[in-house]
Design a protein around this nucleic acid. Structure first.
Lengths: 139, 139
DNA sequence: GTCCGTGCAAAGGATTTGCATAATC
DNA sequence: GATTATGCAAATCCTTTGCACGGAC
């Protein structure tokens, strides 16, 4: 139940929060911007202010319900926090995002941070390129 | 000579461009923001508009004289393009940026992109954490 | 009933752009 | 001299914030 999920992280169960959480849970593609969510809500007849979307997303991020990414595109995208850490492939044309994990790369990152005297808190590996679909369209 | 370096990439040799290029060449730390450059220029008595700094940085980026990075901090930082590709370690406290390369990680990225059907154009691996210095200060 | 959440509009920071003037080739 | 650059100020994009009202516990 979404209500319980919110209460568990110390957030009051309000209509906007439940609806935004719902959007994130059924988001396809998984990675969406604040604007995406706002427009989808408008489309279903909901009347939630964009400012509220931003506020709720920030709270969800702090409650670790979602993860915020800042790819090389000047706006944040969010994804539901579930399952393990993973990295991203981003299509520079259609903005599609795919995920991957590589255990060997993960291992080496830890080693590199250690060697540099860094106390690692996070790490992002993003591969930019043109996805198969976009590539075919142009050919 | 900076003048030739500019002409070679098709940019007229103007005073603002030469001075900004100079700032980038002697930047220490190597990674600087537009604001950083603007303020350093002001400090040396130069009177170059911030808008010009942005315009020139964009031109330099397009001419591949510099590389733009958007780390998870809401503003761009630039570094002179010289030497080979490398990845970054960013201190989340003092914003210090260090560089590294790992051949094995590079190899695996190419393979991952290929398997996903991506035509890779770029890739960024950034490790965030607390650098040794910041860590010591707090202890 | 108290406290927190929301909508609205305005503010904010980084970056870009239009326009008239000034510099380079 | 024609074209491209620059300074200035205004505009833009994404995101945050102040305030008065409404809803959750």
């Amino acid at each position: 139940m979404k209500k319980d999920k919110l209460l568990k992280v110390g957030l009051k169960s309000t209509a906007p929060r439940i609806k935004i959480l719902h959007m994130l849970e059924k988001a396809n593609p998984r990675h969406v911007s604040a604007e995406n969510i706002y427009k989808k809500l408008l489309g279903t007849g909901e009347d939630i202010a964009l400012a509220t979307v931003y506020r709720v997303l920030l709270q969800f991020e702090q409650a670790r319900l979602i993860i915020r990414h800042n790819f090389e595109e000047g706006r944040s995208v969010f994804e539901l926090a579930e399952g393990a850490h993973h990295d991203h492939l981003v299509c520079i044309q259609c903005h599609m995002v795919a995920e991957f994990v590589d255990a060997e790369i993960e291992k080496r990152q830890v080693k590199i941070a250690m060697q540099a005297g860094f106390k690692m808190t996070d790490h992002h590996l993003t591969i930019y390129g043109v996805c198969q679909q976009c590539h075919q369209i142009q050919t």
